[in-house]
Design a protein around this nucleic acid. Structure first.
Lengths: 186, 186
DNA sequence: ATGCTACTAGACCAATCGGTCTAATGCTGG
DNA sequence: CCAGCATTAGACCGATTGGTCTAGTAGCAT
């Protein structure tokens, strides 16, 4: 499917997709290998610590993707609410493309796994990178640094909860309704 | 530890605790059995479909516990915000008792697992039961049915996101700060 | 006591798990 | 052409997985 990607990238993307669908422990190494079309030896060459290494790489890659969507959403936004709303709509579209059953791309793959603290630290870092990216746009739109950080944190919290509810109900509306929930009717 | 509990209840509670810590796929049947002090035969007697049955029972039990906390929190509350705030403080305390690493008691154990749709349906039902319980208190405090349902949904969404952030940071403050985040400074 | 049901007990199973290891195969600079 | 490194390839490993099955025990009704 993605012949031009490097072996390493094919592994990361296959792992990301499968972890999101079935979780860390629910995904077998053999599934990842099959989906990526890569033999076992290559995995341990690129990721010496095996599955755990791969999961951290996948989490990092995912965070970067999310930040890209955030930046896209705020590029032409006249104010905070517009940026946030665009982001919600983009993510709702993604939600519908994935079959509405996957975990939140942001945090779905970040927990679980035997090496608790490594994953927790990875999650914290990814979380903070995402919040910082959103806060930066808040500042650019005139908010004070503290207000921007707070707004970003509140929004990401709401987004995380909304994705969960959207998933149980299989309805992306919950995501699109988040701005109204947080900031009142448009 | 809990000698007076029935075999069935000991299984449910051991499973709840372990699923919350390590997730569904991350928890082995043998761990649950050891923690509950129950042989394998008993499990399949009480839960013919095995692990999946047990997980659904655990989810159901957890939802009931959460509703109990909600009812407690609103018992003496003069208004919505007070009830919600009490709930957040109670849950923050629980968060500190668990070693701040567990998944949200409400939704941590509801996803993942091979039988996707069964678990999803179970999650949806639990989610709605919890929201309905909160909404009932909103109505009792004078909100219209629609307003109460909406307030409850918004709050649970925020709570779910807050627990996730609290977990990555290992700081229960995030939970206690939720009312201010949603409704402004006290 | 007897027969019946509810439950406990754990040996046993095939399948799969994550991980290691050796051999072969490019690919590169000399 | 060859030496040497990076990478691929997959056979193989012990451990553990969820699940089945048979045997035994406890408690109750008759």
């Amino acid at each position: 499917m993605n012949d031009e990607l490097s072996t390493r990238d094919r592994l990361i993307q296959a792992a990301t997709r499968l972890f999101r669908q079935r979780g860390y422990d629910g995904t077998g190494l053999s599934e990842i290998l099959a989906e990526a079309g890569v033999p076992k030896g290559s995995l341990y060459h690129h990721f010496p610590d095996g599955k755990a290494d791969l999961a951290c790489a996948a989490a990092d890659w995912t965070a970067s993707e999310i930040i890209r969507v955030i930046d896209d959403s705020f590029r032409a936004a006249p104010d905070w609410r517009h940026g946030v709303t665009t982001f919600c709509y983009k993510m709702a579209k993604l939600f519908d493309i994935l079959n509405s059953a996957d975990a939140c791309p942001i945090f779905g793959l970040l927990f679980e796994g035997p090496d608790q603290d490594r994953f927790r630290a990875q999650a914290e870092q990814s979380f903070d990178r995402i919040i910082a990216a959103a806060a930066r746009h808040g500042e650019a739109l005139g908010l004070s640094p503290e207000a921007a950080h707070d707004a970003a944190e509140t929004f990401i919290i709401g987004f995380q909860g909304s994705w969960t509810l959207a998933r149980t109900r299989r309805k992306s509306d919950v995501l699109r309704g988040l701005p109204a929930r947080l900031y009142g009717p448009a």
